[in-house]
């Protein structure tokens, strides 16, 4: 009987090269292992498959940088909210319906003319999920995790951000307990804009400190 050998090439090859068997496309090895864990835990009554689907739906479709952008735009336009956010970000964003699933604490760090803030998780990939969704691959890569601390200005330049030499750079290392949201600088020329119009120009990268908010040409 034909037996598919799972090697590193096969792991990355999806779908598998077609042979003359009319069978289903074999998922890569780790996908089969995840299915095995699900099967075992479901049989033990430890997981609810519907809950897994709901979590995936939440992070694929509902939670994303639009949440963080709504927070930032509000902070730019409502001085009271801005003060509350800087004093206790966890409480301020939960009032908007954004809660951390792991009970983590949120801290807002604000960019000014003097200071630019940037966020990393050097150990794994802690990230403010409720506000920004699932981190992009670059945030999870060894390259970013190591270099954001060692040579942050070089990393920023690769994102197209060049800061004046006199601007101080602060790099915040996230943990399982504390996550950071960067409040970028509001660009000139946006006076009188609505909160929604402002939110539309606030990017994920800007809220990690790897981008600036600019007015689209």
């Amino acid at each position: 009987m034909f037996r598919w050998t799972v090697d590193s090439a096969a792991r990355n090859a999806a779908p598998m090269p077609h042979d003359d068997h009319d069978h289903s496309v074999l998922p890569p090895d780790p996908a089969l292992r995840v299915k095995a864990l699900e099967t075992i835990l479901t049989e033990k009554g430890l997981i609810d498959p519907a809950a897994l689907d709901a979590i995936i739906d939440t992070y694929q479709n509902k939670v994303g940088p639009q949440n963080g952008a709504a927070v930032v735009a509000r902070a730019w336009t409502e001085p009271e909210f801005h003060a509350a956010l800087m004093a206790d970000a966890t409480a301020a964003v939960s009032e908007m319906g954004f809660y951390g699933r792991q009970g983590e604490h949120l801290v807002a760090v604000e960019n000014t003319g003097d200071v630019h803030n940037m966020v990393v998780c050097t150990l794994c990939s802690c990230y403010p999920w409720p506000l920004l969704g699932i981190p992009p691959a670059w945030y999870k890569s060894d390259a970013y995790r190591a270099r954001a601390v060692r040579e942050p200005r070089v990393v920023l330049s690769e994102f197209g951000v060049t800061l004046p030499d006199e601007t101080k750079l602060r790099v915040w290392d996230s943990t399982a307990e504390v996550r950071y949201l960067v409040i970028p600088r509001r660009p000139d020329g946006t006076e009188g804009w609505s909160v929604d119009d402002l939110a539309a120009i606030i990017s994920r990268d800007a809220m990690v400190g790897c981008g600036l908010v600019t007015v689209p040409a």
Binding site: A14, P27, A31, L37, I56, Q60, G64, G133, I134
Partner: peptide
């Protein structure tokens, strides 16, 4: 997309 592969999403959710 939030997850590059379906199994990344499954594993995360689990």
């Amino acid at each position: 997309p939030a997850f590059a592969e379906p199994w990344h999403a499954q594993l995360f959710a689990l």
